[in-house]
Write a protein that binds this DNA or RNA. Structure first.
Lengths: 339, 339
DNA sequence: CGACTTGCCGAAAACGTTTTCGAGAACGTA
DNA sequence: TACGTTCTCGAAAACGTTTTCGGCAAGTCG
């Protein structure tokens, strides 16, 4: 069973070794392994056999040096907990074939000088492209226009409209949530969300209001409850909502954290979910949503898809050229039991 | 303000360009920039000036090719959500200076063939070393002994004792939690934890029991409540604990998720936390612990420190040689308001 | 039979660095 | 003057690939 073919991968087996074993020149060996046509089938087979016998693996650095392509991209994030960047990274990872392109992950921890540092290092490594993932879904400073590689801004758009930014369709997400509630017969819908200064909070609220408007409805309580992105705010705001409009029959929370707070207060008040009040969150943060009581319906931002898209756009931009603008990725409803 | 020195970083400025501008040979330019002694101070200054004028940044691929050192390491994880690997990554990142070493992040998604794939790719990229982060804190299969670079297993130890593994001191963590409860006068302590097949669950329980034993105490309810790592189990188990031992005055939960469930049931039963019952969790998963009601005291595994240590050990192993074994990293108490 | 095509292969240049080694200059010493 | 030292510097090799180009043999065609 353990009879691996003597692959003492000890010291760096090179193409020269393969060529010697196969009895050909380095050039031919290279062509044989790269499916170049100008090599006889029998020779190719011999080379390939020699390569596996030595368990040859080409030195990507050398390849990159000559092809002017390192086969790497940098993922530059400021998202401490990796909450948003991880799904994006995973999406990007499987859009690039893992053997074609590897990704450097750098966390700037929200520090501009550290970001500059990382940027220099990545460029020095001759990455073929960059994906920048901001910490919050608002515009962030551009890395500048004179970089030697294409840059794509994911999640947070760049402040420079000439850059290409890929963002969540928060307005659409808000519509989606409210639409779902309306379809299930809810009419007195409240919206509790996070920090007013976040564009995402504004957009989600706007989408919700639009959809309500189409139905001739207004928000229960006549206002959007802005606050902070925390459970505590969700709990407190729910108490206020219940006081002002006791007959509320649905609450759309701007994040899953807030939604957890909402659920908590509803339980305390003995209001059945979803019997009496339906609740829907935002983010589909699994650990919060799936473990809630009852499991939380929520809006998923499709971040993996956003990552895949970023990878595709980047890939295309590497040979061609990149045109700026903002592309949005739609959200998706994840229905569990709270609605 | 925008008067950057004409750094049209357009097409790859090389050392040759710097040398030409400074009026020296490539060799001298290289020595000047690398602080080699055999170059006159005045010449060095001229070269350096030329380099910044062109905003030269050396091609790391070429450097790596000749120095036989790529300045990169691979972080191979199977931890989907990045829950454990991210802190470890961050620790590793700041242990390596960011300009010295960059890290490739690869997620195998728990799939062995994908892992093999990534491994091949990383070796082909000539990483200087590997850090392997498993999905659960139990032993995982070794990558094998005949790899050309040092490997360090973090969080999950390798099954091969000749590999170097860095793990959490779960026994110590259990002791820590119980010790804290005892010091605050608790005597009837229950332990609700996750899946019995997890070594971490066993170890934490063992540490708890040891510390209780030293005090001549037994576990409230005479058993460890093994179950699953979910809030639902925390809720259910707490109900059973209260039924069997209504006078319980503290609950040590095997994870913060479970602790959330515990808190939930205690609220329902109108038992004040920490007045009547103290609760302590494990993981210090901020989103869960800090947002709990009341904020949850918990045991932190110091994963960033584990990452830093991994980086240090790896760094040392890159030139020297690596001796196997298991090193443990201690836990740390994070006291909030639930205890 | 000569000329042209085709198929297969190897020599060598190139990518951008680092490092070794020898050369030249300037200087002091015998 | 002849010789050894000490400073600076540059030519060239090396790292491991890919790619261009030319050469040779065999086959095809007029």
């Amino acid at each position: 069973m353990e009879s691996e073919p003597a692959q003492s991968a000890n010291r760096a087996v090179t193409l020269r070794d393969v060529a010697k074993l196969a009895g050909v020149s380095i050039a031919t060996a290279s062509k044989a392994l790269n499916n170049q046509p100008q090599v006889r089938a029998e020779t190719r087979a011999r080379v390939i056999r020699a390569a596996e016998q030595l368990s040859f693996s080409p030195n990507t650095l050398a390849q990159g040096l000559i092809t002017q392509r390192s086969g790497t991209v940098g993922l530059l994030t400021s998202d401490l907990e990796g909450r948003f960047s991880i799904p994006i990274l995973m999406g990007a990872e499987d859009a690039f074939g893992s053997d074609q392109t590897s990704v450097f992950l750098c966390d700037a921890r929200g520090d501009a000088v550290r970001e500059k540092h990382h940027l220099r290092a990545l460029l020095s490594r001759r990455v073929d492209g960059l994906i920048v993932v901001g910490a919050r879904p608002d515009a962030r400073a551009s890395l500048g226009r004179d970089l030697p590689v294409p840059v794509i801004y994911a999640y947070s758009p760049s402040a420079d409209p000439d850059d290409l930014s890929l963002v969540t369709d928060n307005v659409g997400g808000g519509r989606l949530a409210v639409d779902h509630l309306i379809r299930h017969g809810r009419r007195r819908i409240a919206h509790i969300t996070g920090d007013e200064t976040y564009g995402a909070a504004q957009d989600r609220a706007r989408g919700a209001l639009e959809r309500l408007g189409e139905e001739g409805l207004a928000l229960a309580g006549e206002q959007v409850w802005f606050g902070s992105w925390s459970e505590a705010w969700g709990r407190g705001a729910t108490r206020m909502v219940l006081q002002r409009t006791p007959d509320v029959d649905a609450i759309f929370a701007g994040s899953d954290e807030i939604a957890r707070g909402v659920l908590d207060t509803l339980h305390q008040e003995n209001l059945d979910v979803p019997g009496k009040v339906a609740v829907i969150g935002f983010d589909n943060w699994n650990i919060l949503a799936a473990n809630a009581r009852p499991p939380l319906s929520t809006v998923d931002m499709n971040l993996e898809q956003l990552g895949r898209l970023a990878a595709q756009r980047l890939f295309a931009a590497i040979d061609g050229t990149l045109e700026g603008g903002v592309e949005t990725v739609g959200c998706r409803l994840v229905i569990r039991e709270s609605s």
